[in-house]
Computed example of a mutant assay.
Amino acid sequence: MIRPYFFFSRVVPVTMIAFSIWSCSGKESKEQSGKYSDFTIRMDTVMVDPGDEILMAATNGYAHSVTKDLRTLYYWDFQGSQIEVIDLEKMAFVEKIPVEKEGPNGVGQNGYLMRLLGNGNLAFLGWDNKIAITDVKGNVLSRVKLDEPWMTEGIENFGTLSFLGFSEDGSKIYCNFSNYEKLQPKVVELNLDQESKKIIELPTFEKMDKFRVSWTSEDGTSRSMTYPSLNMTPFKGQYLFTTNILNSIYRFDPQKDSVDLMQYENTLTPNEKAGVYKNEVASQSDIREVSDKIREEINFQLPVWDEKKQVFYRFSYYALPKIADEKVKFRSFISILNADFELIAEKEITDLGLNIPNVQFIKDGKIYLFLNLDDELAYIRLAIE
């Protein structure tokens, strides 16, 4: 399905944000580097008590939202139109909150994704790029649509807006661009109160387009595409922009309107994907074939901050070539960075059997990874020592 593009005749000026580069290699903190020079990982599993309920939160780790105090998990059950609430202190189910899809408090039939805002409200995002802001009980407070003229004017050629996240207070939305012809190394900041926008340039991420794989039917009515991720992670009033194709991190400070490129050198893995692939292919099966090859190169996940130990953990992995009908196997790794994004330790963790580590949060110095354990919600916990 092709999303429509919106064109307007009036050109609206757009603020552009400059960036600087910080190279972290060779500046390692000796104290922290020594502390993690020979670290070990302890692993255990903890299950969530579901009571008498069947928890849809056990089905996948995609739609989980955790409060800043790490005490409560909210899971949006789209099919059941309800929010599952989990107490992360007691690791036990609390309640299910029904949410309307239609009517004055309806979040929409297409509200597939829910995000928890810093002020305690919830945002439901639909496939049609309509967003409903609600309180924690599902009462609609406001609505936003990501194709308002003030949002799109002047940047139509970049593609359609694709939601990344909200600012902590909910007054700003960050988006990247969806485009079948070329991926843009840019993020747009939408100020909902002022109805203004800024373009945040991420030039190193221009490499993402090398790994875009698109297919268009002969009559032009159908399209499919796989492409690298571009993600946003809040961090101490700033935002980190990352992609899975390379380890570089952009740090955006909204107060200073500044963007810094943080770079470090991995030694156990390449720093980025390097293969050459076709951007346009002849069939959907070709998309799968090329995507499988791309996945066999290194893939970087989001950096996650450990407040207790004052370090970032960043997992990476790559798929091994598939053998006959066997399941795909993976090699996985962990990198530890200090607060200045300097690499202070790294280790291969394939022997832990995690395949693609799916980190949900870090609590009390332990890394919690999502686990579906016989259709029950559970977590693998990793302690770095």
Rank of each mutant, 00 (worst) to 15 (best):
D286L: 03
K207Q: 14
Y5Q: 15
R314N: 13
M114N: 05
L73G: 06
E84C: 02
N110C: 02
K130L: 14
M225D: 09
L337Y: 10
E148H: 06
W76Q: 04
F8K: 15
G34V: 01
A378M: 14
Y112D: 07
G61A: 04
S142G: 14
I294C: 11
K363A: 00
Y74P: 01
F312E: 09
N231K: 10
D128K: 06
T233C: 03
M225Y: 04
P254D: 07
F205G: 00
P185M: 11
P13F: 10
I336F: 04
L116F: 09
P228E: 09
E102K: 04
E100D: 15
S335Y: 01
G159D: 07
E376C: 04
T204W: 08
Y368K: 09
G26A: 14
L117H: 03
M56L: 03
W76F: 10
F361K: 09
I298H: 00
E289Q: 06
I298W: 11
E272D: 07
L354W: 08
L373N: 14
V11M: 10
Q32L: 15
G220Q: 04
S316Q: 11
F330I: 00
I298T: 03
N244G: 05
F341T: 02
N231L: 01
E307R: 13
L122A: 08
V213A: 04
T350A: 06
I199C: 11
F163H: 13
D340V: 11
K182M: 09
G26V: 07
S167E: 11
I17F: 00
E181C: 06
S25K: 12
R212L: 03
I349D: 02
R314I: 08
K197W: 05
Y180H: 04
E102L: 10
I245R: 08
S332I: 00
L88S: 05
G154S: 12
L371M: 14
N110M: 13
M208K: 15
I349Q: 05
M262F: 10
N279S: 12
I344D: 03
M56F: 10
M1H: 09
L192D: 03
F330N: 02
L70W: 00
S248T: 04
D69R: 01
W150P: 08
V107M: 00
T134D: 05
R3S: 13
K309L: 13
I97M: 00
L246H: 11
T72Q: 14
M91L: 14
W305E: 06
G170F: 09
S332C: 08
C24I: 11
P321F: 05
E218Y: 12
D286E: 13
R251V: 15
K96L: 01
G26C: 13
S37M: 09
Y62E: 14
L55C: 01
E168G: 08
D193I: 11
L373E: 12
Y5V: 07
V94W: 00
L122I: 13
G170T: 02
K366I: 00
N179Q: 12
V12R: 05
E28R: 15
E153G: 05
S65A: 15
N60M: 10
V144I: 15
N279Y: 08
L261Y: 07
N247C: 15
D38C: 11
H64F: 10
Q255A: 11
R115W: 05
K90F: 00
F166C: 02
T15V: 10
D135N: 12
S65C: 12
I41F: 01
N244K: 01
G154K: 03
L164C: 07
A345T: 03
L190G: 05
K207M: 10
S222R: 11
S81F: 02
